[in-house]
Design a protein around this nucleic acid. Structure first.
Ligand SMILES: [Mn+2]
Ligand SMILES: [Mn+2]
Ligand SMILES: [Zn+2]
Ligand SMILES: [Zn+2]
Lengths: 151, 151
DNA sequence: TCTTGTATTGAAAATGATTTTCAATTACAA
DNA sequence: TTGTAATTGAAAATCATTTTCAATACAAGA
């Protein structure tokens, strides 16, 4: 989908929720809708000030919180720190993350039903949610050293 | 395994790593080795002072870090905050957590090979780690209200 | 277009979690 | 028992997040 359309869709969603469309929010939405990586508040703040110099960190926190409420972004947990945000993928998906550059590639097609069913009957738990994340190295980061000068 | 033996095993591990066995460390080890729930630093601090009144929060942080280095405890990520620690289970296991009381039940037997293989060939990633966590309600927390007075 | 009410903003302060510093203490090898 | 280096905990420093609040700006309606 055209990046501009996604941004407008997000802004529409905000407006439908009773929010106003402002310059700081637009800057944050453009960033989050366009990033293939999960970003933390400070990163959004730093990148966002390129677009909107007066942007405040408080506004970043507030906007990310609102985008999360609307389901447009979601929190991603990483081995080091948590509290990073990523645009939400369509449908039931999980994440594959590059431990070298941070690239996130959503994937679908996990069928955990047999496993959760077995675990539920073994333990007596009622299972109602699952987290699954794969970690590895993306094609780009696997390039041999000789080709690194191309970046 | 006998709880006392586990505690001694952990203390031996610490000593083998060149650490000294001290009263504060013993208190923290007893707590962590015995807890079926993941505990945060403040919880360890509060519970630990029952055993060792002068215990400092700094020592809790330092000891948890060391136990994690030794692989005796590991960090658990939760929907709300992260940074909780849990004794490490034997072998390749994942966690099933009760969202009501915090009880953690490790489980084994996941076979993600087919999935990771497919995702790897679809995306070109080299996959070398996976996180899997199940969330639900434990048998105890599922008890009807009428029996709650028994607790 | 202009007015107006209210949501929004960002600076600053407050809070909370974690880390660093450091002098006193303590484990344990010799 | 002694010497020494590791450890401890109070206090301060740092870092992340939240709260407060006066000024600003969006957008609905005149
Ligand atoms: Mn799934
Ligand atoms: Mn597994
Ligand atoms: Zn990469
Ligand atoms: Zn429970």
């Amino acid at each position: 989908m055209d990046p501009t359309l996604i941004v407008n869709h997000w802004l529409d969603q905000l407006q439908s929720a009773g929010c106003r469309v402002t310059a700081p929010r637009r800057a944050i939405v453009e960033l989050m809708a366009g990033s293939p990586r999960a970003l933390g508040p400070i990163e959004v703040y730093d990148l966002g000030r390129a677009e909107h110099p007066g942007l405040g960190l408080v506004t970043v926190y507030r906007t990310l919180e609102k985008l999360e409420e609307l389901g447009l972004v979601e929190r991603v947990h990483l081995p080091d720190g948590c509290h990073r945000y990523l645009r939400t993928a369509d449908g039931h998906q999980h994440l594959l993350l590059c431990t070298s550059c941070g690239l996130v590639q959503p994937f679908a097609g996990d069928d955990l039903e047999p496993l959760t069913g077995k675990v539920a009957s073994d333990t007596g738990f009622a299972i109602n949610e699952h987290w699954l994340q794969l970690f590895g190295t993306c094609p780009n980061c696997r390039k041999p050293i000789s080709t690194l000068s191309e970046s």
